[in-house]
Computed example of a mutant assay.
Amino acid sequence: MSKEKSQLKEVSDMAKNIWLAGLGAYGRAFDEAQERYEQASKETPRLFTELVEKGRNLESQARTAIDDVASKGKGTATSLEERISKVRANLGFGGVSSEDFERLEKKVDALAKKVNSLSAAPKKAPAKRAAASKAATAE
């Protein structure tokens, strides 16, 4: 064999070996993936069961916490209403309802408007009356 033919055979053998190594790597990766898939398939029901159990525990804890907060909120609202009732009773408003307070508030607002309008009126008229009353007392 000539030198060129032997080099061509070496290159050809090397190319074939590279191709076979790549094919072998693919086969090995496929086999490992297949093994991991089978292992995961076996463990999946157990993992799923564990996750479901953890979910149940967390749900139970959350419900308990929500119930605790809700019951404390109701107790706070009740005690707040009781405090307001005590303050009303101490101020002499024991039997006064919120509608009564609203009516009183409207009346106070109306009176405040009247007072403001009277205080904004010109003061010349009362000054003339005062001068007239001074003249009448002087006579």
Results as ranks from 00 to 15, higher is better:
Leu23Met: 14
Gln61Tyr: 03
Glu102Lys: 07
Tyr26Thr: 15
Lys16Trp: 06
Ser6Trp: 02
Ser2His: 05
Asn57His: 08
Trp19Phe: 14
Ala40Phe: 11
Arg129Tyr: 08
Ala33Asp: 13
Glu10Cys: 01
Glu59Cys: 05
Thr49Cys: 01
Ala21Asp: 14
Ser133Cys: 03
Phe30Thr: 10
Gly92Val: 00
Met14Thr: 13
Ala70Phe: 10
Val52Asn: 02
Phe48Thr: 09
Gln61Val: 03
Ala136Pro: 00
Ser2Val: 01
Gln61Ser: 09
Glu59Leu: 11
Arg63Met: 04
Arg63Tyr: 05
Thr76Cys: 06
Leu91Cys: 03
Gly55Ser: 10
Lys123Trp: 08
Thr64Gln: 10
Ile66Lys: 14
Ala89Lys: 12
Glu82Gln: 12
Lys123Tyr: 04
Ser2Gly: 13
Thr78Ser: 07
Asp109Phe: 08
Lys106Thr: 08
Leu8Met: 13
Ala25Gly: 07
Ala40Pro: 01
Gly27Ser: 13
Ala70Gly: 05
Val96Lys: 11
Glu105His: 12
Lys3Ala: 09
Thr78Arg: 08
Ala62Val: 14
Ala29Phe: 02
Phe48Ile: 07
Glu32Asp: 15
Leu20Gln: 08
Ala29Asn: 07
Glu139Tyr: 14
Gln7Lys: 13
Ile84Gly: 01
Arg103Met: 10
Ala65Val: 07
Glu139Ser: 15
Val115Pro: 00
Val115Thr: 10
Leu23Gln: 15
Gly27His: 11
Ser2Lys: 08
Thr64Phe: 03
Asn17Ala: 15
Ala127Gln: 11
Glu53Met: 01
Ser85Ala: 15
Ala33Tyr: 14
Ala40Cys: 13
Leu47Asn: 00
Ala89Glu: 11
Lys123Gly: 07
Ser98Met: 05
Ala131Lys: 15
Asp100His: 04
Lys72Gly: 00
Thr64Val: 04
Arg28Leu: 12
Met14His: 14
Arg129Gln: 15
Ser41Ile: 05
Arg83Gly: 05
Asp13Lys: 08
Arg83Ile: 00
Leu111Lys: 09
Ala110Ile: 00
Gly94Trp: 00
Gln39Leu: 12
Asp13Arg: 08
Lys123Cys: 01
Ala130Ser: 08
Glu82Ala: 14
Lys5Arg: 12
Arg63Asn: 08
Lys113Ile: 05
Ile18Trp: 09
Ala112Ile: 12
Ser6Arg: 12
Ser79His: 04
Ala112Glu: 11
Leu91Tyr: 01
Phe30Leu: 03
Arg88Lys: 15
Ala120Leu: 03
Lys16Pro: 00
Arg88Ala: 13
Ser2Leu: 06
Ala89Asn: 06
Lys134Met: 02
Asp100Gly: 14
Arg63Gln: 06
Ala136Thr: 05
Glu10His: 09
Trp19Met: 14
Gly27Lys: 13
Ala121Trp: 02
Ala125Ile: 04
Phe48Arg: 06
Ala40Ser: 15
Val87Leu: 11
Leu51Glu: 13
Asp68Arg: 07
Pro45His: 02
Gly55Phe: 02
Ala77Arg: 11
Asp13Ala: 07
Val96Ile: 14
Glu4Ser: 11
Lys42Asn: 11
Ala132Val: 04
Ala110Gln: 04
Met1Arg: 05
Val115Phe: 10
Ala136Lys: 14
Lys54Tyr: 03
Thr137Cys: 06
Ala121Met: 04
Asp31Trp: 07
Met14Ser: 15
Ser60Phe: 07
Leu23Arg: 15
